[in-house]
């Protein structure tokens, strides 16, 4: 019964699937899917980017993180929030407590608070335990100021995009005029006004105007030459840190744990081999205690009609 019902159910599911396959196949041949510019090879994979934090032994380059933070502060933070990071976290970039306090105190946006005398909404200067205040009061305000496009929070940007840090670097350096070949192939795909062509962005046209426009847009205290590419790299490195400030601890702990496990596993293997070497001796009783001999004796005795022989166990 189970098999008959099963057979029918199997036939039904497989049948409907093969029918779908057939119908789809015919449909696909009749009207092939339309191609879009993204699919036609105009969407590019991020350029390779190597950061000090890459790989299992990777550590942050603190100078670079400080430069990246400077770019966030002077360029990105005008529109993008960094909600998950607190000023106190900047200590990890090598800033002293006093420097962190000064950075918080002089931050361009103040922290929303309440006027202690009247209870009305007010703002106050940030302190190290505050998270970075958002440039806009809320999402509506952010959209209103950016022709309805919401500048995303940057805290997790390198983890929230498939391409990670290389994507951030490529996107920031990828602004360019729309290629003529694209317009020739897809005349309707012209970048709409107010948007910017960027071959690394999912649909090729991004609301964000090019943020890093010229070499020397910021000036680095450590003497690094602030080319657009360098600035994009530094801010990408900074965003790797904001997305995962515990990366160094993770790498260091990971190496220790794996080394420990490696030794422990080798020992476990030796111990296993060594215990199994005893297998034969432990479980193969010889002579009259051998279960097979006991069974034989029992059968023989019962055939001969003798009472009280060993009971055949097992079998």
């Amino acid at each position: 019964m189970v098999r008959i019902i099963g057979f029918l159910v199997g036939l039904a599911f497989s049948g409907v699937l093969l029918l779908s396959l057939l119908i789809n196949g015919v449909g696909a041949i009749k009207e092939p899917a339309e191609k879009t510019a993204e699919k036609a090879g105009f969407l590019l994979e991020p350029k390779p980017l190597h950061l000090a934090s890459d790989g299992p032994f990777g550590k942050f380059d603190r100078q670079q993180l400080q430069r990246g933070f400077q770019i966030y502060k002077e360029v990105c933070s005008a529109c993008h929030s960094l909600k998950l990071v607190a000023f106190r976290d900047l200590r990890q970039l090598g800033y002293t407590e006093a420097e962190v306090k000064a950075i918080a105190n002089q931050w361009q946006t103040e922290v929303p608070s309440i006027n202690p005398d009247t209870g009305e909404p007010a703002t106050r200067k940030a302190i190290p335990s505050d998270h970075f205040p958002s440039p806009y009061a809320n999402e509506t305000a952010a959209r209103a100021a950016n022709s309805n496009a919401l500048p995303p929070d940057l805290s997790l940007m390198t983890k929230a995009r498939e391409g990670g840090a290389p994507y951030v670097h490529s996107l920031l350096t990828g602004f360019q005029p729309q290629p003529a070949a694209l317009l020739k192939q897809f005349p309707d795909a012209k970048t709409p006004p107010g948007l910017y062509y960027n071959p690394y962005f999912a649909n090729l046209n991004i609301h964000m105007p090019p943020p890093l426009v010229s070499d020397g847009q910021v000036s680095f205290a450590d003497g690094t030459k602030p080319t657009v590419d360098q600035m994009a790299k530094d801010v990408a490195a900074f965003l790797v840190w904001t997305a995962e400030p515990k990366l160094e601890a993770r790498h260091a702990t990971g190496i220790t744990v794996l080394l420990f496990l490696l030794v422990a596993t080798v020992l476990a293997y030796l111990s296993y081999k060594n215990i199994w070497a005893e297998a034969k001796r432990v479980v193969a009783p010889k002579g009259p205690l051998d279960p097979e001999n006991r069974a034989r004796r029992a059968t023989a005795m019962s055939e001969a009609g003798i009472e009280g022989g060993p009971k055949p166990d097992g079998a």
Partner: peptide, 28 residues
């Protein structure tokens, strides 16, 4: 028969111990 078997401990606890080690290396 008894010849067909081994006691779980220590034989298979040892074998599982090794298996756990390998699996943990991959997992970690």
């Amino acid at each position: 028969t008894e010849k067909d078997t081994l006691p779980f401990h220590p034989f298979y606890t040892a074998k599982d111990g090794f298996g756990v080690g390998v699996f943990l290396i991959l997992y970690m």
